[in-house]
Design a protein around this nucleic acid. Structure first.
Lengths: 187, 187
DNA sequence: TGTACATCAGTGAACGCGCGTTCACTGATGTAC
DNA sequence: TGTACATCAGTGAACGCGCGTTCACTGATGTAC
């Protein structure tokens, strides 16, 4: 039966939030629409009252994950010196907690290799997330010079690479080494 | 009908080589057994004469890709100085050609984020591929010291991160910038 | 403010399709004598 | 070396299952008077 506008908006929000977590935890193509709706407590039919397709949801789910994680990192040690903020950012981005909980973390690291096989709108949402990550890095490597820009790209590639490889490694000590090495290398 | 031992071995090899390319190009879960066998020129039934499961093939396909790409990089400028070899390795790993042809390139970069969602045997094959990549980096950053090891891990994370993000980015100039920045940053 | 009706969020079942895997069968290859 | 038979690579069709999406239906909400 029909729901109030407030309930409808809330349901929609819960679908996006749930999908956002599931996609980061298990990948986009391994999470079905039924997985999402049943986690929310709905049947699949209801999904299509809120979204035109799974792809449309993917775009919003990536956006939400990106906005939430960049907002979180922006709050980290806002009134400290630059080297303290750098250390704080590295410590949280390259933490064991972040590695072991992709569902709450950076969507860029969670989806980076599979995004290449998705459509333009999904890639665009991912690219926007990457741009936001570069803004976060910019809070620690500021400046408009070519060198500053280059340094931001290097830092982003390093931390994403380290986190992704740490998650993919089945050797626990190699996984930890990767995080520690890049934590020290960037600082 | 039954084939000669030579033919059988050749067919098996063609399945692994074809799968290896397809997995790197489109991801493991987006390539079906039927995709592979039809690319080879077989029906699906024949596949199970050679492999117990798709997972068993995945392990061998990753191994082949890893051995082929590390062998290729080992041949790059073998009798030059270290800084020339470093530049040659970076130029080939972080080239536009490598970015635009994942099917012929490094399986670590091609599969890094989706591998986290696969079983232990697949993760183990991936980890072995990562170890081989570290050996290749070791030809340019040698040494048994903790610092040398740390530097190798940093370089590996940087180049994999740059390649993966360059492939995922829908903004062509950002994609090129990522490769160029890390090419210069590591050298 | 109260009533009549249109809207639409959610249900439950169905759709066509592709997935990984299995299996009876065929006939050339490999082996034992 | 020649023959009889077992082996097994590949075919073609089927299996149960889960996928994304659609749709007739229900009944509370929103709207027009």
């Amino acid at each position: 039966m029909r729901r109030s506008r407030k309930d409808t908006a809330e349901t929609r929000g819960r679908i996006v939030a749930t999908a956002s977590r599931l996609f980061r935890a298990r990948g986009i193509s391994d999470v079905s629409v039924a997985d999402i709706t049943s986690a929310v407590g709905l049947t699949v039919g209801a999904f299509y009252r809120h979204f035109a397709s799974k792809d449309a949801l993917v775009v919003e789910a990536i956006e939400l994950a990106s906005l939430q994680t960049t907002a979180m990192h922006a709050k980290t040690a806002p009134d400290a010196g630059r080297s303290e903020r750098t250390q704080a950012l590295l410590d949280s981005y390259l933490s064991v907690l972040h590695r072991d909980h992709p569902e709450l973390g950076c969507p860029v690291a969670a989806l980076c290799s599979e995004i290449a096989h998705h459509g333009p709108s999904t890639k665009q949402a991912f690219t926007a997330a990457l741009q936001r990550l570069l803004v976060v890095v910019g809070s620690v490597v500021p400046g408009k010079s070519k060198q500053a820009r280059e340094r931001r790209l290097q830092v982003a590639a390093s931390v994403v690479g380290a986190l992704v490889l740490s998650r993919a490694s089945s050797d626990p000590s190699l996984a930890d080494e990767l995080l520690a090495a890049v934590r020290r290398g960037v600082a």
